Simulated scan of single mutants.
Amino acid sequence: MAHLNCAVLPRFLAALLLLLSWIFGLSLGTELSFVTCGSVIKLLNIKHNVRLHSHDVRYGSGSGQQSVTGVAAVEDSNSYWSVRGTSDALCHRGTPVKCGQTIRLTHVNTGRNLHSHYFASPLSSNQEVSAFGEEGEGDHLDEWTVQCGGSVWKREEAVRFRHKATDALLSVTGEQYGRPIHGQTEVHAMSSPSQHSLWKAMEGIFMKPSESPPGSRDYSHPHTEF
């Protein structure tokens, strides 16, 4: 089987992204100034310069659920999350996410949702954040409210995610794990807003607004990894 050399690979990936944008009606990061439902994105904690990350490694304490961490690497495919609606409020594909809207963030590679509850986080003893559910379906503890300054979630804007059930904010304060996830940063939730709870949408594919019928479901999303 032929292998792509290093010089050809970036051009191949660029061509693949352009093809996907044509098939799925996606924006590759240049046209849309806001985040839309159905988009697959990476989220950067701007204080600690780490991207929200998960993987099939469970916590050894607390809930024992799938761990959620922060990683410095830009290219890691385990940092992609799909922006989705809740079971009570659909998020129609391609529509801008509003400030104050409640969403779910589904980890693309494992199909589990960003989740929180009153377990203590392993390193800082703040509120644990985990990934929970199967194939994108979990429970009401997967719901997060987007806090931003205008009418919609703008891509260049730093936003916060408030956990709807516990009122805590998705945060990073810099504690780092040892083995088996050496160097990855603890992600947890905290009650008070601070610089540690500011996030920005980064790399990804963004669904363009469309004329989809109002009753269409939002649960499908591209699983392509880049």
Rank of each mutant, 00 (worst) to 15 (best):
W81S: 05
S77P: 05
M1H: 06
R217H: 13
G29H: 08
H117V: 02
H140V: 13
A131Y: 00
G149R: 11
E128A: 03
A201L: 04
V152H: 15
Y177K: 05
P213I: 13
I23R: 12
H182D: 09
L169Y: 15
C148S: 06
P96L: 12
F12H: 12
E143W: 10
A158T: 08
K42W: 01
L19Q: 10
Q65V: 00
Y219E: 13
K208G: 02
R11Q: 14
G38E: 13
G25R: 02
H107A: 07
S197Y: 01
C6G: 00
F206G: 00
H107K: 10
D142Q: 09
D218Q: 01
P193V: 12
H107D: 03
P214R: 07
T36I: 05
V152P: 06
W22C: 04
A14S: 13
R51W: 07
L4K: 04
E186D: 05
S63F: 05
L141W: 08
S39W: 06
H53Q: 09
S61H: 04
G62F: 02
H182G: 04
V68R: 04
W22E: 14
F34E: 12
L43A: 06
L169C: 04
T110M: 09
G38F: 06
F206W: 15
K47V: 00
K42C: 09
L105E: 02
K164N: 08
V172A: 06
S191F: 13
L17F: 06
E75G: 05
S220R: 04
H53D: 13
E128S: 01
M202A: 14
P10F: 08
F206R: 04
G150K: 04
Q195T: 06
